[in-house]
Design a protein around this nucleic acid. Structure first.
Length: 134
DNA sequence: GCCAACGTTGGC
DNA sequence: GCCAACGTTGGC
């Protein structure tokens, strides 16, 4: 099972929106690297829901419930289906992630504009711990 | 095929 | 509001 991080601007679609909906189609991604990640996702993979811009923190955990399907008239873009698993006990802010040396290699940090990126298992575990103690 | 110009994302 | 990072487009 793989871990991911998926960004959304809370002004357009927030964690609260996802909870309300009980799940959503993660579409509208228009970036080649992000698309590759979407296509690599499998059912049961887990992902952090990261709110960018005004919040700038990982706030919840989602599960992939369906592998990719075309997002648009052809296979050029992909979307996956997700559902909320649970909120993090505390949001893990970008600031906190940047302050943690063991998270310096996270794709979130290395390529800040990438809206869908992989998370290494040890990074996933560490972020969960940070959410507990924050 | 290179690179400058431009657009978008997202942190600060 | 600004700017850095990155992707895309188009002229040559």
């Amino acid at each position: 099972m793989a871990y991911w991080l998926m960004k959304s601007e809370p002004e357009s679609y927030s964690w609260a929106d996802l909870l309300r909906d009980g799940g959503t189609e993660w579409n509208g991604v228009r970036n080649n690297a992000a698309r590759l990640h979407l296509k690599a996702m499998k059912v049961g993979d887990e992902a952090f829901f990261y709110e960018s811009m005004s919040t700038k923190a990982a706030v919840g955990i989602m599960r992939i419930t369906r592998t990719w399907q075309p997002d648009g008239p052809d296979d050029a873009w992909a979307s996956v289906a997700v559902e909320p698993v649970r909120a993090l006990d505390n949001p893990v802010t970008l600031k906190a992630i940047k302050a943690e040396p063991r998270l310096a290699e996270m794709e979130l940090i290395r390529q800040s504009r990438l809206s869908v990126c992989p998370v290494r298992p040890e990074e996933w575990k560490l972020v969960l711990e940070m959410a507990k103690s924050a």
